[in-house]
Nucleic acid binder design. Structure first.
Lengths: 386, 386
DNA sequence: TAACTTCCTGAGTTTTCTTAAGTAATATGA
DNA sequence: TCATATTACTTAAGAAAACTCAGGAAGTTA
């Protein structure tokens, strides 16, 4: 079967949620036999399942067809019953695991959590222990979300200031010692962006920015993750800010990240509120009481400039914010949103949307699993022969 | 014929410059009969021509094959003899025209130049006059490079501060009154980026930044122009600069453009050198004499931050600079280059390249012509009397 | 001239998608 | 209840594009 059509059909079915073969054929503009064959193949492979539930007579399109005539379609959807992927979030403080099916539709829900140890060996032995407890041993593949600068092709971590041991480790090989099968590494923010898109398939073009220990982003254009040649992208947090002299973990001076990461905000907060405890709760309380003080405004402004610059260059109008900033009082997001609109060129011609969203790593990992493991790209375009 | 393979073959032939059917087949990893058939078809359509010149026995690959054995291939290349496209650069002060073949290999060379008039009607009548003088009347299409914010799909100009009449005009319809056939609009910086890639096909990933009346950019990733949903992208010039309060033509305050556009630089120069004439030549002379003064350093720094931010977010390591900055003493480009490297994250892991290049609009327009006019309309294009 | 190498092309096969036609499952109405 | 309309799915035949195989063409080497 043409991999391209298979991919298109799976994507469309994911967007529609539930659809019959005929719906898919019509929606994709391909013939019914073709759509039917592809669907059968995916069904046989266990990627799809039949939704036995009574077909929704309310019709896919909306309200116009109250009770559809004719033979009802056999509805299909992504398989939700059988776990296929072992999803692992390798976080700075915590490692989380879950066995996920192809059709995940919920927010992140990790079945196992453990403290991330300080070395590769310890991590593997923890994983092995967890794997022993899990009922299912075999998966189509293992998906690992990793923070830092990640070369997803090579499976190497180039740089990870808060998790240094990953830089020397061969993570794929490590995971391979616990579970057989392919292992895919995914840079954390890319997983978040894919997860957001997976769970809200109608958003096809956006910049996701995650605020946490660091500040990073990822770009989805036309429903696809922005692909670029370097193992680095979306590094919004390391845009230099003129006049900022804080040292960044990346080695440079003045990065946005030094102002708006969790640590950067707390540091600025402590500088101006010597008496308050240097804690996230105290910061939140202070903002709720005093509003956006100048130091915070400046930090948000710096982030907004970086974000607006990215929107202008890439040509987007939709920003999704995840992470720590969304947990502060709403005034923070409001300020950020206004600052972004001030700098975003499109705001002068149409609407710019800035929205807060939860982190959806698990769904993102599933999306990667489907993309790289279920529908592997048979490299059509080969490099030059010698 | 499969459009995809046709496109791939044409692209490969363009990169190789000259190649036989067998070279193309090998290089693309497709079978010889297929490559041969596609080549024949393109030859028949007049997109390719046979390079009768003695096949270069030195081989394509390099030195290893001194004198190749076997039957020599019939070398092919993009047709250079028959003009196919009417290329028009609609500039703020000057409109330039040239009739170009599919295979352009030289720097920009416009055959007609005329002052851009102040209204759509006058522009059309000028075009009509020029068209009357040209020997060739029929083309595969007309390609127009336009400054400002351009909706290439719709053929509308959203915003053009220095050429306001284009905002209300239907440029495609205007051109259609002079020449029959399809008309494609291309945003100026996008044309420049495509032109650079067309003439140096080995550069597949770069950010082009053009400095002139405004400052804008365009992104090429994996050999393709970055495509995005909005009719706006590459707008590096309108990244806000914290602390800059100059009003920009775009309506916002503090854009990079107000500091490093031709006008912005001259303004800053005049502010600090009240006695010197406010001219580009005087600016150049002053820089040659005094080096990079603080005001200029600040302006370049602001531009570099915007550029470095774009590199970090998009994930690139190669910048191509065109336009006015490249015509100032080399110290300017050197300073800019160093400032970009300071902000570009990749500089800490590998090389970041910043290069100056001439503007190559004409080639960019040809690239658009091939992409949008030659390849999609396979059936329509037949060998026409020239 | 014979042997060898490489290039090009024609013939038949495979893959993949399309159209067309037939069967299945439901609603509607006499 | 039964015929009819409508929609869903399946099977069969055909068309397009790319592949393999093989043979002729056009050179070099010995």
């Amino acid at each position: 079967m043409g991999r391209l059509n298979k991919r298109a059909l799976l994507d469309r079915l994911h967007r529609l949620g539930t659809a019959s073969r005929a719906d898919l054929a019509k929606s994709l503009g391909m013939s019914q036999p073709t759509a039917g064959k592809i669907a059968d193949e995916l069904l046989r492979a266990g990627v799809l399942e039949e939704a036995d539930l009574a077909p929704p007579r309310t019709a896919v399109n909306g309200a116009k067809a109250a009770a559809r005539l004719g033979r009802p379609g056999r509805m299909l959807r992504l398989d939700r019953s059988r776990p296929r992927f072992m999803a692992i979030q390798l976080g700075v403080t915590e490692t989380r695991l879950a066995a996920l099916p192809v059709g995940a539709d919920a927010e992140d829900c990790w079945s196992v959590r453990l403290e991330t140890p300080g070395s590769a060996e310890q991590w593997v032995s923890e994983l092995r222990r967890v794997a022993g407890q899990l009922p299912q041993k075999k998966f189509w593949g293992v998906l690992v979300s990793v923070p830092g600068l990640v070369d997803e092709q090579e499976g190497k971590v180039l740089f990870s200031p808060n998790l240094h041991w990953t830089e020397k480790a061969d993570l794929r090989q490590l995971v391979g010692r616990v579970w057989k099968g392919p292992v895919a590494l995914v840079q954390e923010e890319r997983a978040l962006a894919l997860g957001h898109q997976y769970l809200t398939p109608e958003s096809d073009d956006f910049l996701l920015v995650d605020f946490g220990d660091g500040v990073g982003g990822a770009v989805i254009v036309a429903g696809k993750l922005h692909a670029n040649p370097l193992p680095i992208s979306g590094e919004l947090g390391h845009t230099p800010v003129l006049g900022n002299s804080r040292r960044c973990g990346c080695g440079a001076t003045g990065c946005v990240e030094t102002l708006v990461s969790t640590r950067g905000l707390l540091e600025s907060f402590a500088e101006t509120h010597a008496k308050s405890p240097k804690s996230w709760a105290a910061l939140g309380a202070s903002i709720a009481e005093h509003g956006i003080e100048p130091w915070l405004a400046a930090a948000l402004e710096a982030a907004a400039v970086a974000i607006a610059g990215a929107l202008n260059v890439i040509g987007l109008r939709h920003v999704v914010i995840t992470g720590s900033l969304t947990q502060l009082p709403p005034a923070v997001m409001d300020y950020l949103k206004q600052a972004i609109e001030r700098g975003a060129m499109w705001a002068r011609f149409g609407r710019v949307e800035v929205e807060a969203a939860p982190r959806r790593r698990a769904a993102g990992l599933v999306a990667v699993g489907i993309d790289r493991l279920v529908l592997p790209m048979t490299g059509q375009i080969r490099p030059q022969a010698s």
